[in-house]
Amino acid sequence: MLRRGRPVGPEFVESAPVCMAFGAEVAAPPAAVYRELAECVEDWPDWFGPLVAVARTPEGRQVRLRGGGQFWETVLVAEPATRYAYRTDRTNAPGMTALVEDWLLVPAGGATRVRWTVATDGTAVYRAVVRAARPAIGRSFRDAMRALDRRLTLPES
Score class of each variant (00 low, 15 high):
Met1Ala: 08
Leu2Ile: 06
Arg3His: 03
Arg3Lys: 05
Arg4Ile: 01
Gly5Asn: 10
Arg6Ala: 07
Pro7Lys: 13
Pro7His: 12
Pro7Ser: 11
Val8Trp: 09
Val8Ser: 06
Val8Arg: 07
Pro10Val: 13
Val13Cys: 00
Val13Asn: 00
Glu14Thr: 03
Ala16Cys: 03
Pro17Glu: 09
Val18Phe: 12
Cys19Ser: 09
Val26Gln: 08
Val26Asp: 04
Ala27Ser: 15
Ala27His: 15
Ala27Phe: 10
Ala28Tyr: 12
Pro29Asn: 02
Ala31Tyr: 06
Ala32Thr: 05
Val33Ile: 14
Tyr34Trp: 15
Arg35Trp: 14
Glu36Phe: 12
Leu37Cys: 02
Cys40Asn: 10
Val41Asn: 06
Pro45Lys: 11
Asp46Lys: 15
Asp46Ser: 14
Phe48Thr: 08
Gly49Asn: 03
Gly49Leu: 10
Pro50Met: 14
Leu51Ile: 13
Leu51Trp: 15
Ala53Ile: 03
Ala53His: 06
Val54Cys: 15
Arg56Gly: 02
Thr57Asn: 02
Pro58Ile: 08
Gly60Asn: 09
Gln62Glu: 10
Gln62Tyr: 06
Val63Ile: 15
Val63Tyr: 14
Leu65Thr: 05
Leu65Asn: 03
Arg66Met: 02
Gly67Ser: 07
Gly67Gln: 08
Gly68Pro: 10
Gly69Asp: 10
Gly69His: 09
Phe71Ile: 12
Phe71Thr: 04
Phe71Val: 03
Trp72Asn: 00
Thr74Cys: 03
Val75Glu: 05
Leu76Trp: 06
Leu76Cys: 04
Val77Met: 07
Glu79Trp: 11
Glu79Gln: 12
Pro80Lys: 08
Ala81Phe: 13
Thr82Glu: 05
Tyr84Leu: 04
Tyr84Asn: 03
Ala85Glu: 07
Arg87Pro: 00
Arg87Gln: 02
Arg87Ile: 01
Arg87Trp: 04
Arg87Val: 00
Thr88Ala: 14
Asp89Pro: 04
Arg90Ser: 00
Asn92Ala: 01
Ala93Thr: 15
Pro94Lys: 11
Pro94Thr: 03
Thr97His: 09
Leu99Cys: 07
Glu101His: 05
Glu101Ile: 05
Asp102Pro: 00
Trp103Met: 07
Leu104Ile: 07
Leu104Thr: 12
Leu105Gly: 00
Val106Ser: 09
Val106Pro: 01
Pro107Leu: 04
Pro107Ala: 08
Pro107Cys: 06
Ala108Tyr: 13
Gly109Thr: 14
Gly109Met: 13
Arg113Asn: 02
Arg113Asp: 02
Arg113Ile: 02
Val114Tyr: 14
Arg115His: 06
Thr117Cys: 05
Val118Thr: 11
Ala119Asn: 01
Asp121Ser: 05
Gly122Tyr: 12
Thr123Cys: 04
Arg127His: 09
Arg127Gly: 03
Arg127Trp: 07
Ala128Asp: 01
Val129Phe: 08
Ala133Val: 10
Pro135Asn: 09
Pro135Met: 13
Ala136Asn: 09
Ala136Val: 15
Ala136Thr: 11
Gly138Pro: 01
Arg139Trp: 15
Arg139Pro: 01
Arg142Ile: 09
Arg142His: 14
Asp143Met: 06
Asp143His: 12
Asp143Asn: 11
Ala144Leu: 05
Met145Ala: 12
Met145Val: 03
Leu148Arg: 13
Arg150Ile: 10
Arg151Tyr: 10
Arg151Pro: 04
Leu152Cys: 07
Leu152Arg: 13
Thr153Arg: 14
Ser157Val: 14
